[in-house]
Design a binder for these strands. Structure first.
Lengths: 123, 123
DNA sequence: AGCTTGTTTCGATGCCTGTCTATGCAAGGG
DNA sequence: CCCTTGCATAGACAGGCATCGAAACAAGCT
């Protein structure tokens, strides 16, 4: 498992909240890639299982029982999350332990955050 | 255009940050639906154009020139955003003006936000 | 009523994606 | 070396989705 995860240009993302100015085509493509990784119920549940697991990490063996899916499907989903830069994996013997990358999630959260604009009254 | 937009259970979402406990199947389905609406570059750019437009709103006529796409495609994307509860539309004469729903985006941001957990050193 | 402008909906189409089975790779032990 | 366990990859397939052109709907004007 690589010590150099997929490049997530966190700095660029954290300074481009989508509510302040139009996103460029490049920014929107990169953000869409990350949101797409989150746009599946199984992947969201995998992410939350990993993040909330004891020690902040979980091996694949901790994850598969929570789903009525085969191992290859779980592997595929973990790969999508990993390639989107949302999780990292580390091999320990036979097992692979995954961790969430909080900075990547935080960057997405920042992009979605308005400057405390209230929702329009009466909408 | 309905005064009662699609129900976004904002309260339920805001209290279920995915990093603190495993998401339920229902929660993950609802979140995935919203993230899926954001998982397209055109829709992200539409959202940012609407949000950053003067007055915090934009009519479809303000949006279509920014894309090399047909009107029906823009309408389709706006519909996806609307049905995901991320924007609202209001008809004014011939025109329809769209606004972002900050509370919905804020709820997503909150879900993604960890309690300031630093990224693991050395990952 | 007809006409114009703005927007949405419908249906077709090519591309994308979640899931499975089969297979391959990695690590550990004898 | 072989065997076992754990996990990832490859390929097929059915369902989903972005896009278009055609059609329909909404609003305003004469």
């Amino acid at each position: 498992m690589s010590k150099h995860p997929p490049a997530v240009d966190v700095e660029a993302l954290c300074c481009s909240p989508l509510m302040r100015r139009p996103l460029s085509a490049d920014e929107s493509t990169e953000l869409a890639r990350m949101f797409k990784a989150l746009a599946d119920p199984v992947r969201l549940r995998l992410l939350s299982l990993v993040a909330s697991h004891a020690g902040g990490e979980a091996c694949v063996c901790d994850l598969t029982d929570a789903f009525d899916l085969t191992g290859p499907t779980i592997s595929h989903h973990l790969k999508v999350l990993r390639e989107a830069g949302l999780i990292d994996g580390e091999r320990r013997g036979t097992w692979i332990y995954y961790r969430v990358r909080p900075a990547a999630l935080g960057a997405l959260a920042t992009v979605l955050t308005a400057s405390a604009l209230p929702e329009r009254v009466g909408t």
